[in-house]
Amino acid sequence: MNIFQDIRNRKNTKSAKWDGLQEVFGTDDLIPLWVADMDFPAPDAVVTALKERAEHGIFGYTLVDEEVKQTITKWLKRRHKWLVPEQWLSFSPGVVTSIDMAIQALTSPGDEIIIQTPVYTPFFNSIRNHGRQIVENPLVLKDGRYEIDFENLDEKLKNAKALLFCSPHNPVGRVWTQEELEKVASLCQKHSVTLLTDEIHCDLIYEGSRHIPIASLPGGISKRTVTFMSPSKTFNLAGLQASFIVTENAAMKRKIDNQILIQGHKNLNTMGITAMQAAFEHGEEWLHELMNTITANRDYAINELESNLPGIHVIRPEGTYLLWVDCTTLGLESMDLKKFMIEKARVGLNAGTSYGSGGEPFMRINLACQRSTLQEGIERIINAVKESDLLS
């Protein structure tokens, strides 16, 4: 059986995506295509490793040992041509936790931190909650593809302490080219700005694009870069709470590691460590099949939406399993658009307003589900728009 088409009931499993519908949307009678986890089971090797570890029966403090670290560095070398010594690695429960701790360790209250909107929602709180100031360098939508406004970025970096960078970008799906990354790196060096780069979607890349860790570029940018990664998005392991940080600069790493200790995150979850190692050692074939499935879902969703709803424009992602849909032609205000998708279409989507300026007329759709689930959700959207006569 193809596990990517095998529907497993996630209700009553304490799933945020499925069991959190009532709390988030006010009803549980929706097709959930929102929060970024997958409806696919993890690789068999991960499940087997977890079962074997569970059968041992003792769950004391667990080390991230040399074997685990080597598994990570081999993955980065094999998948991204990035040579990372083990001593550059730090660990935390999740990427957002890591971002919070890096901001606390490497910036001060009142410092300006740049984000490129519309962007991953937690970025905003990671800056605000620690008394730092958000400065926006809005992305520019040009001919159906988002670009960085480098002139604006150059100006904003003059007074900034850090750039919180999303690569690949969530929600717009860009996989930044080497030329774009080199420009970002050059400007950060020019203004002596710390580069904090969230690369959690780095393994979810469609054919024709290639993810390049920005810290792997020559020219010295690695000395001022902190990279956040995790197997959680790649292998659907978010609930197991394991991520890693790559920092070449020894002084910066000491500050981050100290902040990890202060916050009480010295030890990772035993099962998270087990799953991370198994995924990176044995998950490559599974990942290949995953990308085939998501690519087919992407192409299906774009074709159905644009063929049946003239005027609706979908940004074709180069990476991630997320679809960014421009609903401007529906003529609805952002809150009314969100309400329409819930009450009329009966789908649970992420509203573009939560991603900051530029996201207002958009909705984000999660493609990482079985085709039958996606088909039901897309058909509901199409039928609701037609029945409401919004495109006439």
Rank of each mutant, 00 (worst) to 15 (best):
E66M: 01
E66S: 03
E66N: 03
E66P: 00
E66H: 01
E67V: 01
E67M: 00
E67G: 01
V68L: 01
V68S: 03
V68H: 04
K69F: 00
K69G: 04
Q70V: 02
T71V: 04
T71E: 06
I72A: 03
T73H: 03
T73V: 02
T73W: 02
T73N: 02
K74S: 05
K74N: 07
K74Q: 07
K74L: 03
K74V: 02
K74A: 07
W75K: 02
W75Q: 04
W75R: 05
L76N: 08
L76A: 04
L76C: 07
K77P: 00
K77V: 04
K77G: 11
R78F: 08
R78E: 14
R78G: 10
R78I: 07
R79G: 11
R79A: 10
R79Y: 05
R79P: 05
R79I: 09
H80W: 06
H80A: 02
H80M: 07
K81R: 10
K81Y: 15
K81M: 14
K81W: 13
K81T: 13
K81H: 15
K81F: 11
K81I: 11
W82M: 05
W82N: 08
W82H: 12
L83C: 06
L83A: 11
L83H: 13
L83Q: 12
L83G: 00
L83Y: 07
V84Y: 12
V84A: 01
P85W: 08
P85E: 11
P85G: 05
P85H: 03
P85D: 09
E86I: 06
E86T: 08
E86S: 08
E86C: 12
Q87E: 07
Q87C: 04
W88N: 11
W88E: 13
W88L: 10
L89N: 10
S90H: 12
S90F: 08
S90G: 13
F91W: 09
F91L: 05
F91I: 02
F91Q: 08
F91E: 10
F91N: 09
S92E: 15
S92I: 13
P93S: 13
P93N: 10
P93I: 08
G94W: 06
G94Y: 07
G94S: 13
V95N: 13
V95Q: 12
V95P: 12
V95M: 10
V96Y: 11
V96H: 14
T97G: 13
T97E: 15
T97C: 14
S98Y: 14
S98L: 10
S98I: 09
S98E: 13
